[in-house]
């Protein structure tokens, strides 16, 4: 069993570490610092941490002002509230003036678990991706979270980082390097490509293993940056493998699957099957039960690849 870590925990740790190296980093939270893990930074740098109370719109607006005055603000809350409650502030006070604010939203997707549908963002990627100039990052594990949060600090402009609640397997070695907008090829294959993001990358790898045993060699891409997409890697995947399955802990509308389908449709059309949440809200339950119930499983990925195989064999 691989070692596990929640991406939010990785975020909390790296943020506190980066705070040491970079004086410009300031952190804001809306009464959820213990959950988003900004509390680690808050304890270490109390004067550079601002608890904004339960007021997400004000938090993102304040972050904009801090950025306009030269700071690098990280604003954290749950993904539902960051992208829902504060959408207009993100759009008009952050993205439109292209201010250097990092929105690190935790508790994204179904794996929030027991809190239920009101707290499970299934559309946050779609919302953020639609905003001009917004970078959207969905790390798959703790290592990539740390690397990508660091990369976000060095990137000038607004970034949305989507983080999760539960502990998930570590996929990368500690010193693995990550570049915003550059996908990671975790497994090569010539038959099909599975493009995954976030916690679904680990499941995509498992699926690839099962498929390999049946003679289907799939390539697996960790598309940790959903915007800008790694178009080069995708174009190559379409050309060399002829079919793509996308996998995400997000609605199939507007997220990774949409982004990939839009891109290949215009450049190198190949069949695409989107594994994701089928235009519904989540509900209460244990994370694993929810992933099972909403079809975010290794079996469903395997099934999707086989469907792709049958479709292409039948010339569909």
């Amino acid at each position: 069993m691989a070692e596990k870590m929640a991406t939010r925990d990785a975020y909390g740790d790296i943020l506190a570490q980066l705070g040491e190296e970079n004086e410009k980093i300031v952190v804001l939270d809306a009464d959820l610092s213990k959950s988003t893990k900004t509390v680690v930074f808050a304890k270490k740098f109390p004067h550079r941490f601002f608890n904004m109370g339960i007021a997400e719109g004000d938090m993102l607006g304040t972050a904009a002002g801090l950025a306009a005055a030269g700071k690098i603000p990280f604003a954290s809350t749950f993904a539902v509230f960051a992208t829902g409650r504060a959408f207009d502030q993100i759009r008009n006070s952050i993205a439109y003036p292209r201010l250097n604010v990092k929105i690190a939203a935790t508790h994204a997707g179904l794996t929030v678990g027991e809190d239920g549908g009101s707290h499970q963002a299934v559309e946050d990627i779609a919302i953020m991706r639609a905003i001009p100039g917004m970078v959207v990052i969905v790390p798959a594990d703790g290592v990539s979270t740390k690397a990508l949060v660091t990369a976000a600090v060095n990137y000038q402009g607004p970034v949305y980082i989507r983080l999760g609640r539960p502990a998930v397997p570590l996929l990368y070695k500690e010193d693995e390097e990550f570049v915003i907008g550059k996908a990671k090829e975790l497994r090569d294959g010539k038959d099909f490509t599975i493009v995954a993001a976030g916690i679904m990358v680990a499941k995509a790898l498992e699926a690839a293993e099962i498929l390999a045993a049946e003679g289907i060699r799939t390539r697996v891409l960790d598309m940790h940056t959903i915007k800008p997409l790694d178009e080069e890697a995708l174009e190559r995947a379409a050309r060399e493998t002829g079919g793509i399955v996308t996998v995400e802990e997000h609605s199939v509308i507007g997220g990774l699957g949409s982004a990939v389908a839009e891109f290949v449709a215009e450049t190198h059309p190949v069949p695409v099957i989107r594994v994701g949440i089928q235009d519904v809200f989540g509900e209460s339950g244990k994370p694993d039960e929810l992933l099972e119930k909403y079809g975010l499983t290794v079996e469903k990925i395997v099934e999707a690849v086989k469907r792709l195989k049958n479709n292409t064999a039948a010339g569909l």
Binding site: R48, G61, A64, L66, A67, S93
Partner: peptide, 22 residues
Amino acid sequence: MSTGSLGQGLSVANGMALAGKL
């Protein structure tokens, strides 16, 4: 500051004021 969507300027001003103090 870019403005137009009403109600946001005071939050932004707070951010600038906080930065000035820091």
